[in-house]
């Protein structure tokens, strides 16, 4: 789910960036520093949408650097346990399949794929029901439910399930 949120960060700026462009420099450094990062609490920082407030700078002892507390608004993307997402399948193997929802990777284990779907190997590996009516393969769109998340510095990784009512393939590239 996307969020709009106000975050705060202490920015250290080298004196060579001071002057009439100080604010611009501060903002572009902020963008470089935070956009694309992620945290467990907020998820992916997708984009900064505005600066609320830049506080008074504080000179750091011993260096020329000055620390500015910056409050900024940003759009973040964070998956939640229990959330329903629509994701695009990126890889299928006998362990299950990987899918992508925006910047987030999701793995659906074969234990969490309905029992009537069997793995078929080949150059286009897929999961198919016995009557062949439903097929999950690369580029399929699936609706899944997040049941676990893991966050590291640059990536969010989720475990999902499609073993429930109203979950599963929503659009099959082969038939479309």
């Amino acid at each position: 789910m996307f969020f709009h949120i106000v975050l705060e960060r202490n920015m250290q700026l080298h004196p060579r960036y001071f002057g009439r462009n100080l604010r611009d420099n501060l903002v572009s450094k902020l963008m470089k520093d935070v956009e694309g990062t992620c945290s467990g609490r907020h998820g992916f920082v997708v984009a900064i949408t505005g600066i609320e407030n830049i506080g008074k700078g504080l000179i750091r002892d011993g260096t020329g650097f000055v620390t500015f507390p910056v409050k900024y608004q940003c759009v973040v993307f964070r998956p939640f346990k229990g959330e329903i997402l629509e994701a695009v399948v990126t890889m299928v193997n006998k362990m299950g399949f990987f899918a992508e929802a925006g910047p987030v990777q999701i793995f659906v284990s074969n234990h969490l794929i309905p029992d009537d779907m069997e793995f078929q190997s080949g150059d286009m590996p897929n999961y198919t029901t016995s009557d062949g009516s439903v097929k999950i393969q690369k580029d399929s769109e699936v609706r899944l439910k997040i049941i676990g998340t893991r966050v590291d510095a640059t990536e969010i990784f989720c475990i999902g399930t499609i073993k429930d009512d109203f979950l599963g393939v929503i659009n099959d590239p082969a038939t479309a």
Binding site: F3, H42, F80, K81
Partner: peptide
């Protein structure tokens, strides 16, 4: 498994629809 968005995000966050 229930969705508990409110408990997991800071108060000042606003959910956005796609």
């Amino acid at each position: 498994l229930e969705l508990k968005v409110e408990q997991e995000i800071p108060k000042n966050a606003k959910c956005l629809m796609h």
